[in-house]
Design a protein around this nucleic acid. Structure first.
Lengths: 157, 157, 157, 157
DNA sequence: TTTT
DNA sequence: TTTT
């Protein structure tokens, strides 16, 4: 239920295996990072490469799919909304911020054959997992925003 | 020149007037914030509203258009790529991060009549500004990434 | 539940009032067109304008929101998936095709004050309609694709 | 140079090898189709698959890259704008329409190792082609729309 | 800090 | 920390 648009779309590779946990209220949540690469010609005419790293968060059934099928190195499409969280750094007492993509859609790209996966697509009975944010979720209190403070304290990041 | 996809798309309202400056090398750069609003029903069934704030950076001709036509409160569509910058906080000596959207396309939404603009669309000869990132730029060193360290030190954020 | 990505995103103005109907199975469906404008410089250096027309279809609760709040001339954001239908032209016996955007998200843009609407935003108690495709729908057979042939014959376009 | 937004984004597989030609005015143009797949549960609870076919057109340098590197079966990301063309069917004298995606960005997905390509990524000196629509093009008369009638008659579709 |  |  949006007024306005807040959308991020990435195609890149996972920088680490997904890290999964369950909140106090029983919600699954997964975190991973995705690198997007861009090449451009610098002032001297040489090709340069820049890598941008993105923090991805997925909830519920989508979290479980990410946890089960994604691995470090895997190429993915990720769609979601941008969210900036703040927290107090205990050491310095300062407020810190981090921007994450709250994932609502994920697609595995490539065949998986050479992506370090556990070979799901060599299994003929494999059903490509459906990675759209589970729809019964869309009308429920929004994850992340709707979390109780207890749950927020629980978050592994 | 991308390998992969790194795209953000917003529809929201400016939280402040654009702030423009020119780098040491003569590049125009503008900064502004955009709020996206989302309403959702909380655990108790009450409508809640969440506002997400986004930091927008535009370069070159697009910066000048943003500076000239956008005002606090104006509704806009913004498209760009996500970029996370880090800097050293002089007070604490810590590394800090901020994520921005490097704007490549901007569209003004609504009629402008009631958006605090300077009435550009009451002028019959007005040509809606073209807000696509100036194209001769696409092959040149990418702004933001391609900046010299001097210019980076110069940045007003 | 997608494998792959099939997404269209538009910002434009309605070319007609939405046309609503209910299928034999009781599903609401609405049709309208959206014009997107593009200006470019032609070979002789003159500014030219091109208008592209898009056919939009919405189902269920989203159809009802579109029908209730959208009017010819209104500026909207529309997101959906591309779908090409074919039918047999009775006169010529030939197969014909049309491509539509099956809408999953709609946002009204601008204030509505000068958009020929029925003044919803002058009503202080107005709650901006939520235009995301109703989520309980996402797990049901997909509309449009899942229609019975009877319903398809029924479609008003 | 847009007023409004007209964007399509696909991830899918090529249904045929790209077909390339050069217009009378010397512009390269390439055509290919992309299939996007969607799986959903039908009224009887069985998994169904739907395939949607999209017609892609690319111009200029991007056409040449598509022609050189894409093959039937290859997985790609395609971004572009929707354009509906009409022509007179000589047999029936009727006007017919087709909707295409005028490609402005293309990314090859997966490793290419198992995608029927000519093995470009087994070549260590291979530089991933840059597939963004050539940027000097953005300020020139828009391809497709800016074509002379002669060129349009020439088009191979 | 925006907007409805 | 990914990938080509």
């Amino acid at each position: 239920m949006a007024r306005g648009l807040n959308k991020a779309m990435l195609i890149g590779h996972l920088g680490n295996d997904p890290e999964m946990r369950v909140t106090a209220s029983g919600q699954s949540v997964v975190n991973f990072t995705v690198a997007t690469n861009e090449s451009f010609r610098d002032n001297n005419g040489n090709m340069q490469e820049r890598t941008e790293w993105h923090r991805i968060v997925a909830w519920g059934k989508l979290a479980e799919i990410c946890n089960q099928y994604l691995k470090k190195g895997r190429q993915v499409y990720v769609e979601g909304r941008l969210q900036t969280r703040s927290w107090d750094d205990n050491k310095t007492g300062e407020k810190k911020y981090t921007t994450e993509i709250i994932c609502s859609d994920m697609q595995m790209l490539g065949s998986g054959r050479d992506q370090g996966g556990q070979g799901y697509d060599s299994n003929p009975s494999f059903q490509q997992p459906t990675a759209q944010k589970n729809s019964f979720r869309d009308d429920t209190p929004d994850q992340g925003g709707g979390l109780s403070e207890t749950e927020k304290d629980d978050l592994p990041f």
